[in-house]
Amino acid sequence: MSATGLRPPRHRADPRAVAWWTARWLMLMVPLAGAAVVAYLLFTVRPGWLGVLVAVFAAGCLVLAVVAPRMSYRVERWEVTDDAVYTRRGLLTHTWKVAPMSRIQRVDTARGPVQRLFGLADVTVTTASSAGAITIAGLGHELAADLAAHLTTRTQATPGDAT
């Protein structure tokens, strides 16, 4: 970190994260769109204008499931320096989270069942801050393990009480 502030983080998630995020969005949006279509078919007298509205909604759900992960991949970044871990997220509002090395209390990795199919993992850095943990999502599982080991070693070598 420089005295003038943080530069934008350099690293993106693993490219496989786009497929994982798409799968997650589809697991949410396909049942939602399907429920709208089934409700239209079973519980209405099927006016044409409502059919068009349901079709547009269902198509919008599927488009969102395909577009949102790609947009997130273009925007989300992370970086680890000698002084801090930081991330940037958000399409309209960029949210930065910064955890100084001296404040890190825990470093965790997580690999859900769908993540394992894509060979991915998340690294979560926890501090005593009320703002919550920093999660670096969608990393290759080898990189995530290496990053967790590096952060653990680095925080142990950093003076401070992590509170």
Rank of each mutant, 00 (worst) to 15 (best):
I104K: 09
G119C: 10
G90K: 00
R106M: 09
A84K: 03
D82C: 03
L62Y: 09
V107R: 01
T95G: 04
P69R: 06
P69K: 12
V114N: 11
Q105K: 11
R111L: 12
K97A: 15
A99I: 02
P100T: 10
V80S: 03
S130R: 13
L91F: 14
T95S: 12
T93K: 12
Y73E: 10
A84I: 05
W78I: 05
P69Y: 08
P113N: 06
S129I: 09
G112D: 07
I134F: 00
H94Q: 14
S130T: 15
V67C: 13
R111V: 11
V125F: 01
E79A: 02
R106Q: 14
V75G: 04
M71P: 02
V114W: 15
D108W: 03
R103Y: 00
I134D: 00
R74M: 09
A133W: 00
A133E: 03
L64E: 10
A131H: 13
T126P: 04
V63L: 15
F118R: 12
I134C: 00
A110L: 10
A99E: 01
P100I: 12
D108M: 04
Q115C: 13
S130V: 09
M71E: 05
T126C: 06
F118H: 07
D82R: 11
S129Q: 08
R103W: 02
Q115N: 07
Q105D: 11
T124L: 00
T87N: 01
S130N: 13
R106Y: 12
K97H: 10
V85R: 01
T127F: 01
T87L: 01
L120T: 10
S129L: 08
R89V: 10
G60R: 04
L64V: 09
T87G: 01
T95D: 09
R70Y: 03
V123C: 03
T95F: 08
I104H: 10
A128Q: 03
V66C: 07
T135I: 08
T124P: 02
V125M: 03
R74G: 14
V123I: 03
L91G: 13
M101Q: 06
P69Q: 04
R88P: 06
W78Q: 06
T126L: 08
G60S: 08
L62I: 13
T135K: 06
L92H: 10
V63R: 05
T124N: 01
G60Y: 02
R88A: 15
V80L: 09
T93A: 14
T135F: 05
V114R: 14
L62Q: 07
V63S: 08
C61F: 11
A65W: 07
L117W: 14
R111H: 15
R106P: 02
